[in-house]
Amino acid sequence: MPFFIRKRSGKKEEFNIKKLRLSLDKAGADSQLINQIIEKIKKQKPCSTKAIHKLITQMLTKQSPAIAARYNLKRALMELGPAGYPFEQFVAHVFAAQGYKTMTNQIISGKCVDHEIDITATKANKHFMIECKFHNRFGLKTNVKVILSIQARFEDVRTAWEQNPEHKYEFHRAWVVTNTRFTSEAIKYAECMGIKLLGWKHPENQGIGKVIDTVGLHPITALTSLTHQQKRAFIKEGFVLCRDASKHIAFLKSLGFSARQIKKLIKEAETTCFL
């Protein structure tokens, strides 16, 4: 029998088992585990998406921390905050893994004024100006006003680039990356102006979650073996990738990790990135 849950927005809707099954499958859960989770949810009938998420995370973590990490990717991206810079670092790594040469926090001279650009990325003769819009609360979207502002800045920078003999014949384009969603008007305007967008489930079947899985990079915040305080310590040191956990043993020891805990964390990091 179907039951209703309360979303974070306060709106009630029927619990979608098919959607949950698909999400768990994408995270790497096998059919047996998926069925166990669905049966438990049907039995307990949690009243909110938050309660359902907590129940699923507990079951996944017990069975496979790596699968739990993948399932919690959206939340893990949000935990890179509250400031946006760690997300910018993470996005730069994702683009670098796709063959781009990236630089973060660059001051670029436009035709009229200087601009602080989150990321510049180049590949062959393609030159991208990437702006990252980080949100640390569920439900927030990147709207058309943001895209309008970025477009204006990009036009100033592009004009200067095209007047530079070294860049004259390169392909120049703006790219906006967010950890949540874009509004329909933002998407419409970006498509009209030729601005590339990358967000949660956008483009369809090629959103940021899909890209992260494809390149095999996950944020350090996805690791269930780390406490919130430990995640913050890693981020403070500039370590934003889950694979960083296995590369900085001395840092783990400085946080008080035992040899057994380090071994467990490294195993989770490796299986999360290469599952």
Results as ranks from 00 to 15, higher is better:
54 K>N: 10
47 C>G: 13
56 I>P: 03
73 L>R: 08
47 C>M: 09
51 A>C: 05
69 A>M: 07
69 A>I: 11
49 T>R: 03
67 I>L: 08
73 L>K: 09
43 K>S: 15
56 I>A: 07
64 S>Y: 01
73 L>F: 13
53 H>A: 14
72 N>K: 06
61 T>Q: 05
51 A>I: 07
65 P>E: 12
46 P>E: 03
64 S>A: 13
47 C>W: 03
72 N>G: 05
69 A>G: 15
66 A>P: 05
66 A>C: 08
58 Q>D: 14
67 I>S: 08
44 Q>H: 13
55 L>N: 07
47 C>R: 13
51 A>Q: 10
68 A>H: 02
51 A>S: 07
47 C>Y: 06
44 Q>P: 05
68 A>N: 05
58 Q>G: 13
57 T>I: 09
68 A>E: 04
62 K>C: 10
49 T>A: 12
46 P>M: 05
61 T>K: 06
68 A>T: 05
61 T>L: 02
51 A>T: 09
70 R>S: 08
57 T>D: 14
62 K>L: 13
60 L>V: 04
68 A>R: 03
63 Q>K: 14
70 R>F: 03
49 T>F: 00
63 Q>G: 06
49 T>Y: 00
62 K>T: 12
66 A>V: 04
68 A>D: 04
52 I>D: 09
53 H>R: 11
62 K>Q: 13
50 K>M: 11
51 A>E: 10
60 L>Q: 03
56 I>M: 04
61 T>S: 11
45 K>W: 01
68 A>K: 03
63 Q>I: 07
50 K>W: 02
60 L>R: 02
